[in-house]
Write a protein that binds this DNA or RNA. Structure first.
Lengths: 201, 201
DNA sequence: TCCCGACGTGGTAGTCACTTCCACTTCGGG
DNA sequence: CCCGAAGTGGAAGTGACTACCACGTCGGGA
């Protein structure tokens, strides 16, 4: 690894530290990209070369994208899907993905901006799509298969419920209840008496 | 209703028609708010007074926000929750929410822009939150209750699966097809329940 | 009927995220 | 040590969105 790559990695960390410090200090929305660049001691165009958008300064160090699907694919083939998903979810939650201090700062940054919270939700949707793809790969089906999407949806739902400190995580531990509930719901929706949809023309 | 309100309503429709025409014609991203204002024959600041953001020009006429939760709340109290949810979903899918021509234009607009598709997902998350609140109200629990969130999540998941243009591009425009497809989907999911992660230990 | 206050309009100037372009510096292989 | 390649940062520009303000229009009361 040449000096260029080392410098790039150092600059990257430098930018992240500078950015998160400002975000915590004055809030995400009140911090401009010029502030970040100045505080990191670089030019704004260089900043944009490292992080193509402002929100990446928060999303990237979270290191969630791709990890759930990767964790699933890392499980042995012969493991039943639900068990493998369980391990994947747990490993993701337990993994000290980044040092705690940075995670705490990210938390504060997210709390300071509605736009960022929206951005986080968007990321969850992305993760769900990735996971659906991974499940599809495991089952030899397309990732757009409704079964794959539904399973991925349930799993990320569980993850969301577990990740939000606002909830008590009891429902997470009772995954069986979630499945039962889901099946009943789907069946009741399928059994609705046919009412005739009316379209003009 | 005074002349002012009549004019305001007319201007509103005028803007929407102008905007959607431009979006379909040259794409959402390539259309600036100035273009829209000029094409509607008004000033840009007036445009912003009617629609506080560009995406509202597409999101608002979709008229989805609030409708699912309203449909649930309209069901009789004594109906079991899952049955009530079934009715709510079906009624939402069946409702000819806006004239088909405008929906078709919206579809084309959304297809023309990644940013808009992201925005749509965001709206789905919003709908989910609203539904969780409505479920909570029905059960006498807070809307942040994990059970409410999980149920809302499952329901919007079903809605997304049925309506997602990725599954079948023509479905959005054809309510009858959506209902048929949704029923089949529900049935298959009930028969082959999605796997929820079974957590170790 | 006219008039005055309230409301709606649109223009100007500004902020900020983000892009493009270009001259300059630094790196590292030959 | 030198030259091409890669990285840097400044400048100028675009577009969404905001704040402000002078002007015109509406509609109730005199």
């Amino acid at each position: 690894m040449g000096l260029r790559e080392v410098n790039a990695a150092r600059t990257r960390e430098l930018i992240l530290d500078a950015a998160l410090e400002l975000f915590v200090d004055r809030g995400y929305d009140a911090t401009t990209m010029e502030h970040v660049a100045e505080h990191a001691g670089i030019g704004t165009s260089t900043l944009y070369r490292y992080f193509p958008s402002k929100d990446q300064l928060v999303i990237e160090p979270l290191a969630l994208q791709g990890h759930l699907s990767a964790a699933l694919l890392a499980r042995p083939e012969e493991e039943p899907l639900d068990v493998a998903l369980g391990h994947a979810v747990i490993s993701l939650i337990e993994a000290p993905r980044a040092d705690q201090q940075r995670l705490a700062k990210i938390d504060a940054a997210v709390a300071s901006s509605d736009a960022l919270q929206v951005r986080l939700n968007e990321m969850f949707v992305h993760v769900r799509r990735e996971l659906a793809e991974a499940i599809g790969a495991r089952l030899g089906r397309p990732g757009t298969d409704p079964y794959c999407i539904a399973t991925a949806g349930l799993t990320t739902l569980v993850l969301e419920l577990a990740a939000d400190p606002e909830n008590d995580a009891t429902i997470v531990l009772d995954a069986e209840a979630v499945v039962t509930r889901a099946r009943a719901l789907f069946r009741s929706l399928a059994d609705e008496p046919p009412t005739s949809p009316r379209l003009p023309e």
